[in-house]
Design a protein around this nucleic acid. Structure first.
Length: 299
DNA sequence: TAAACGTGGCG
DNA sequence: TCGCCAAGTTT
């Protein structure tokens, strides 16, 4: 147990007050903030994993229109969720959201649970999402650490440009120590919003930051990140790209498709078969007895 | 722990 | 143009 490098009490209070006051005026009017039903929060959190808000908005609206409750989604085949997911990316999230909705119906009477352990037991819900649902949907005092919040704390408090690749114990202690006594759920939303709108990864707008005068990274002259360089994701020619192509065919088709339709979108047969097998193993694609391929449950 | 997992927009 | 990055989770 190390002592977290906390701010002086007066600075900590000002950090709370200024960020919360800023949030009151700058918070975006997002649909999952208007309808704060736990299901709305849960759906938005799944969609927002590694995906920008702007791309989520239209898919989210259509999704909630079609499936207003977990039971509504659970009543349909998983393939419908995959299809409705569209081009949001990481389609296993659609499968997991469908599975989570099913679990909510089976284990929690159709109501999204509020307890951390119950949330973590749902498919696709990890440390961040459990905290986000507890905080945003139920107003609980939960530690929430997403990429935005972590970056804000790294800069303002720790004085470095970026947080470590993975959450460290010290970082969790810091986030816990920084939580205000009251309205921790507002603090979570406010710090996340600050990271998303002002304290951005690439070009932070420090002139618009409510706590620029407290920021240790700024005070020390914006030292560049010195840690290991984050490995970029390769894309061209990868299995990932191939999977995307194959699944797009199925998503855009009316029903099951012939193998030839899949073969047409990727030239390398070895890689194509490997990717298709992977999609089947993941449950994103079903090989039918007829020899056709379909989204799960799509007959 | 590190690698896999989609997609598209921005600097 | 092209690498970086986006409200992470799983294995």
């Amino acid at each position: 147990m190390s002592t977290p490098p906390l701010l002086p009490r007066a600075d900590l209070e000002r950090l709370h007050d200024d960020v919360m006051a800023w949030f009151e005026t700058a918070a975006r009017d997002l649909p999952w903030r208007r309808d704060v039903s736990p299901w709305a929060v849960m759906v938005s959190e799944f969609m927002l994993q590694q995906t920008p808000v702007a791309r989520v908005l239209p898919v989210y609206e259509a999704w909630m229109q079609r499936w207003p409750t977990p039971a509504d989604l659970a009543a349909e085949p998983a393939g419908e969720a995959v299809r409705a997911w569209g081009r949001l990316g990481y389609p296993r999230r659609a499968l997991r959201l469908h599975a989570a909705a099913t679990a909510v119906v089976e284990r929690h009477g159709g109501e999204v649970p509020s307890g951390r352990d119950d949330l973590l037991a749902l498919p696709g819900v990890g440390d961040y999402t459990a905290g986000a649902i507890a905080s945003f949907a139920f107003g609980d005092r939960a530690v929430v650490m997403d990429t935005n919040i972590r970056r804000v704390f790294a800069r303002v408090v720790s004085g470095v440009e970026y947080p470590a690749a993975a959450v460290t114990a010290a970082e969790r202690e810091l986030a816990t120590a920084l939580m205000p006594g009251e309205d921790a759920h507002v603090w979570a939303a406010a710090t996340m919003e600050l990271g998303a709108l002002v304290c951005t990864a690439r070009s932070p707008q420090c002139s618009a930051c409510p706590v620029a005068d407290l920021c240790r990274w700024r005070a020390s002259g914006y030292p560049a990140h010195d840690g290991p360089v984050r490995r970029g994701q390769s894309w061209e020619g990868t299995d990932r790209q191939c999977r995307g192509r194959l699944l797009a065919v199925l998503r855009e088709a009316e029903g099951p498709v012939a193998k030839a339709r899949l073969d047409a979108v990727w030239p390398d047969a070895v890689q194509r078969e490997r990717a298709l097998d992977g999609l089947v193993a993941d449950g994103l694609v079903e090989p039918l007895d007829s020899g056709l391929f379909a989204l799960p449950g799509d007959r």
